[in-house]
Design a protein around this nucleic acid. Sequence first.
DNA 1: GCGTGTCGGGGCGTTAGCGCACAGAAGCGC
DNA 2: GCGCTTCTGTGCGCTAACGCCCCGACACGC
Lengths: 243, 243
Amino acid sequence: MSIAPSAASCNHLLAALPQSELLQLLDKCEAVDLKFAEILAEPGEPIRHVYFPTRSAIVLVTLMDDRASLEVGLVGNEGIVGTALVLDMAVSPQRALVQGPGAALRMKAELFRQALEGSPELQHVLKRYVHAVMAQLAQTAGCTRFHVVEARLARWLLMTQDRAHADSFHVTHEFLAQVLGVRRVGITRAATTLQARGLIRYARGNITILERARLEAAACGCYAADKLSYAHSMAHPPQRPAA
Amino acid sequence: MSIAPSAASCNHLLAALPQSELLQLLDKCEAVDLKFAEILAEPGEPIRHVYFPTRSAIVLVTLMDDRASLEVGLVGNEGIVGTALVLDMAVSPQRALVQGPGAALRMKAELFRQALEGSPELQHVLKRYVHAVMAQLAQTAGCTRFHVVEARLARWLLMTQDRAHADSFHVTHEFLAQVLGVRRVGITRAATTLQARGLIRYARGNITILERARLEAAACGCYAADKLSYAHSMAHPPQRPAA
DNA sequence: GCGTGTCGGGGCGTTAGCGCACAGAAGCGC
DNA sequence: GCGCTTCTGTGCGCTAACGCCCCGACACGC
């Protein structure tokens, strides 16, 4: 099975690789179609595949006591699911849950590990991505602590839009509550306000972003901070640090 | 200047290295004595040195809008300050602040980068440490969201005790408030309760842990979870993943 | 058409933590 | 010993979010 490099380069990490490396990698990948609510990894369990989303979005969720959970990462076509492997670990620390169904490339963990070992370029790109994830994680932690639900919701919608590449997508209040670590009612309130202000529209799980610019204004600064930090982490990805 | 390997191996990461690698590394290190409240790194600024604490503790703090800040990491003799370098990045995403003054080894960033490039062993150990840090970051994010100040304070004291290797250390309520991202008064309340229950004692910035076992019971499960997760990440550190 | 499940909305009392302001107490320099 | 600074304790009103429970509305399958 052969995957067109053009399709693969929807993923920014893959796109950052030199053509030759990319082709080698694609040889070991298979194209998959991720279904909504599919679980790609469970905390404590060995990682079987890594995923390069091309047109899909995955949330990383940390599970606390029983009912409580919290999003600690959002992966779209700028990233990869399975960062633990980059850090020489075999098991996932979080649950990876498909939120935006769609296309992704996946690769068996063992093949990925080998590819990594053989390619300093790949290592470099992925290490920088891991750095971006860490920075985002720290930002999210602060955001969760200090910002109100409405602003956090706005931020999340923007981040998702960036990753889903669509103005509208499927997410219920219930799901958002899990992700943001609040009650469903909290989401309802915040979403109602945003809708009343004409920034979004939603009905039965389908959310549409109407006015992106104003939604950005409604979000906390974390959204902008994240973008900046990501851009900074991934700047000049094809170069080795020695360069 | 030569540093005794015995002193160096107070740091778990260094201790995990083969003797030959360790000696090479120590050659490029210098022993320093970190002062309380010293700032080792600022967000956005290039990292000048990495630090291997041997008998000191450093907090990593993410700065939000102006007054607000939040601890996102605690580094003692199990870790290193400057993980960004392991991920091929040159700048620190957070502020690194000395909380427990004491001895550390430090190394110029450039020498460290070279050492890293020349030693897969070192890379391996550090990558696994980065993984542990990430896992802890996710845990902390959830903890900050869901757990009450008292439990979080208990957890923090335990973690600090583990890193400071002393039953008593210097931290004011004000400092703790910054670190846990709450008001000073919130700390006062929680600390008063813990003191009334006989778990700790404090006076003018000097906190003493009296009953560790009961303090562990007062802390949220995150403390235990962290320990487990760290142990898991650092298991078999000297082996390559291929082994 | 009708039931059933999913989704969104509302109410009500409770609570953890906030912001602010002030007061006592212990250490430190001079 | 005096005064300043740092550290800790208290009071008060406020608010974001909680837990719980129920209702209406829409959608889909039969």
